[in-house]
Design a protein around this nucleic acid. Structure first.
Lengths: 170, 170
DNA sequence: CAGATTGACTATCATAATGGTAGTGACTGG
DNA sequence: CCAGTCACTACCATTATGATAGTCAATCTG
């Protein structure tokens, strides 16, 4: 009996979660974005057991989110760096940051995205890059792509819901 | 020895992940956004073991992402619905969707966000709601909030990295 | 109205995954 | 040469997960 994998599902969310959905993975990525590259930096920052960190880093490297590169050979030392695929994960962490700030910081926000020039606190929203409009129903909807399976088409008939239901101001 | 919790960390990403970071939680939320409300709908859609589903739904309800409401008393039947807190999780799933589409669908995208009127495929980006500018360095930076601990302040000195490093076109 | 089915679960139990501690090997700094 | 750093591996005690089976109430089927 293995842990059930999501990578055989056709949904891109499931496919993605299969790579970063374990208990520590996203926090390791967060620290990688914060500039950490070395084993002991992650270890101290997270308070994670070393065996666990080894396993997670290995999985993230295998899934193409991090690279492991030797930066010193005399004492063999490696560093972990984000790949392009890892960099692309950034919006997920930013969305999580905004959600965490909104719901789980009763003391007030610990981290904020601010305008570098004015210092004003930013308010993150997802929009379409070209038109600049907010990604929500009824302007946008979730549709099946060209490679969608029959099950996926059936599931998406009606808008899929992730953008809100048409006519409902979610 | 319990599974290590993240809810005592000061980082909002960690706080958030503490609530939705287990193996099935985000997929259950995905299905809730897709309009599912009933136990057996989740069970069939996910292929999850019923005991596991019970545990996850319970945790999501306890954490305020879903509500459990009785919709029929004669045969006691409950339905699970997203709360406001659950609804706010939407951008995280959309960001995951975009990332999964970009990196883990070699056959081509299964799901796409499209403009309801024109049918064009949308390109999701995170921007500041007021100014409309992309949330990235050097325009924006990650700063500590008013309630930040000393450790958090130290960690964020220099921009934090989540938005890219100043001067680096990440 | 007996029997089958649905819906929403709980119980049980074998395997995995996680967390903690300790130890290893290659240096390095004093 | 002795302590310390770095990046791990080994080992083991707990938890968590996954699979199957069973429960209980009600409703459909014939």
């Amino acid at each position: 009996m293995q842990r059930k994998r999501f990578n055989t599902m056709s949904c891109p969310i499931a496919r993605g979660l299969d790579r970063v959905g374990e208990w520590w993975s996203m926090l390791i990525l967060r620290d990688a974005f914060a500039g950490m590259t070395r084993f002991d930096q992650f270890e101290k920052s997270l308070g994670i057991a070393p065996a666990m960190l080894t396993r997670r880093l290995k999985a993230l490297v295998e899934n193409g989110l991090l690279t492991k590169q030797r930066y010193a050979s005399h004492p063999p030392r490696d560093e972990y760096r984000l790949t392009a695929r890892g960099e692309d994960f950034r919006p997920v962490l930013l969305a999580l940051l905004a959600w965490g700030n909104a719901h789980f910081t009763p003391e007030g926000p610990q981290m904020q995205i601010i305008d570098a020039a004015s210092g004003e606190v930013a308010e993150p929203v997802l929009v379409d890059a070209r038109s600049g409009r907010k990604l929500q129903a009824p302007d946008f909807k979730l549709a099946h792509g060209p490679a969608a399976t029959a099950a996926m088409r059936a599931r998406l008939a009606g808008g899929g819901g992730l953008l809100g239901w048409p006519g409902v101001g979610a």
